[in-house]
Computed example of a mutant assay.
Amino acid sequence: MTIAPAKLSDPAVRAFVAAVNSHDPEAFFALLTDDATMSDDGTDRDLADWTDREIFSSHGHMDVERESQGGRALTAGFRNDTWGEMRTAWRFTVTDDGRISRFETGQA
């Protein structure tokens, strides 16, 4: 059973998932702080390169299975044209103004 993106608790995370699933890099990057960072499986990555490769050019898609920590931690099925489908964990740091300053993902 998945949670529809519109039903996610945290507004920034809700918009993040919607931008990923609609393949909208402009909306995606508008959600992030100018100095946002990210990691994949515990290793910091270049955010622009990683998101292009893993999300936008490979048609990434998230099916959220559950949320915790007020909606700032997700378990989701993530699929793209490169790797197929895998179960992933996502954690978000959201600033007081509602933008994402960091996200961490990896296999769940």
Rank of each mutant, 00 (worst) to 15 (best):
F103Q: 02
E54Q: 12
S39K: 00
D49K: 10
R87K: 12
T105I: 05
H59E: 12
G77C: 05
E104I: 07
D97V: 07
T2E: 08
A18C: 04
H23Q: 15
A36M: 11
F56I: 13
F28G: 09
D97N: 14
D49E: 15
L8G: 03
R45P: 01
D41S: 15
V13R: 01
S101P: 09
A108R: 00
I100G: 04
G98D: 06
R99T: 13
Q69H: 11
I100D: 06
V94P: 07
D44H: 11
D40P: 00
R87Y: 02
F103P: 04
Q107G: 00
G84M: 04
E85L: 03
D96R: 10
I3S: 08
L8T: 09
D81A: 15
W90H: 14
I3E: 09
F56G: 12
W50S: 15
T75V: 11
A48H: 15
Q69S: 14
G77I: 11
G84K: 00
G70I: 09
W50M: 11
D46K: 11
A108I: 00
A12T: 06
R91E: 14
D44V: 14
R53S: 04
H23P: 00
R91A: 10
R53L: 10
W83Y: 12
A27Q: 09
D44C: 08
G84S: 06
E65M: 10
F16K: 03
T82W: 12
W90F: 15
A73I: 02
T95M: 07
F92L: 13
F78M: 02
R14I: 03
A6F: 04
V13F: 01
R14L: 05
S57N: 06
D52S: 14
F16A: 01
T95G: 08
F103S: 06
L32I: 11
S9P: 01
R87M: 05
N80I: 04
S101H: 02
D24E: 06
A108S: 05
A4M: 08
A36S: 14
T95C: 11
G70E: 05
D35Y: 13
L47D: 13
D97L: 05
F78Y: 10
D81I: 10
